[in-house]
Design a protein around this nucleic acid. Structure first.
Ligand code: FES
Ligand code: FES
Lengths: 150, 150
DNA sequence: TGTATTTAAGACAAAAGAGTCTTAAATATT
DNA sequence: AATATTTAAGACTCTTTTGTCTTAAATACA
């Protein structure tokens, strides 16, 4: 998998949040049920994103989490890097230490091009855009077929 | 990592073999030392490739493994699929079951394009080309800086 | 103040990936 | 025939990832 499972869960939750009213706290329990992700596991992941500054949380009744910036200002790549780190964008495809044009492996040239296109895709996509698309076209965000953006 | 560690080891060994005389058996011990990969682990991986039909092995003194086809006929993607499977080329980037245009996730459009470019890169590169490039330009194939293609 | 709700934190368990080690089978050489 | 070399096979261990569970802390509300 290009992206770890933890990261995927974080991304799906982020998209869910991005589709909500700005500033509204959404409970993790709610999200975990709608997205079909284990509540405790999702909690742990969102804690990371909160610690990273991408989300804000609020305890107590009607508490929950929300994005700390407008969804239009959050690029997909920020979530990925926050959870998986930036290895994907820097590492040698043959896992040799220090990928770069000074000590290239035989695949360096073609891989660095491909990697740039992955990076571009992650950098050019905002949560807002994806959430709007998802909402308008009713695209799925969970395993079960009956996901609803409301 | 895009490609698993086992797969990376298999790829590095394949490139090493591709740089050798066609038909020559190379001992796994030799390769493991030159490439800096655990002998037993590499053995296990090459057994998979042998079982898959991409390599042939020969036991006993002067035994070893060799590619079962000319290196020019083996595309990078064959090794990847033999070890990691074809998930990379089919899976939804959000890990939702059944990626396809009939049940797309919000990222499907951009991801399927990116995935095609990864696929194209893996399909258009032969072991022979990479091994020749590596040999000519003396590119590295191991962690230590002093790798030598001979 | 007491209780219910919600995130925070961290211990714990299960599964998968990575790596090690031992023994068996095949082959070449003497 | 005996021995050395090499891959085959599989048990085993270690690490990382994934997932579960329990308890603590914060907050709202009656
Ligand atoms: S050195 Fe291998 S991809 Fe850059
Ligand atoms: S359905 Fe998600 S990438 Fe195709």
């Amino acid at each position: 998998m290009l992206i770890s499972k933890s990261c995927v869960y974080g991304l799906r939750a982020s998209l869910f949040l991005a589709s909500k009213k700005n500033g509204e706290y959404i409970s993790i329990r709610d999200m975990s049920e709608k997205l079909g992700i284990s509540f405790h596991f999702l909690t742990k992941i969102l804690q990371q994103l909160t610690a990273y500054g991408l989300m804000e949380s609020y305890k107590g009744p009607n508490g929950g989490v929300r994005l700390s910036k407008p969804a239009g200002d959050i690029k997909f790549i920020e979530i990925v890097v926050a959870i998986d780190g930036d290895d994907l964008l820097n590492e040698c495809v043959l896992n040799l230490p220090g990928c770069g044009s000074d000590t290239p492996c035989p695949l360096h040239e073609s891989w660095s091009k491909t990697r740039e296109s992955i990076k571009a895709m992650l950098e050019n996509t905002s949560l807002e855009y994806l959430a709007k698309e998802g909402k308008n076209k009713n695209l799925r965000l969970s395993e079960v077929g009956n996901f609803d953006w409301e």
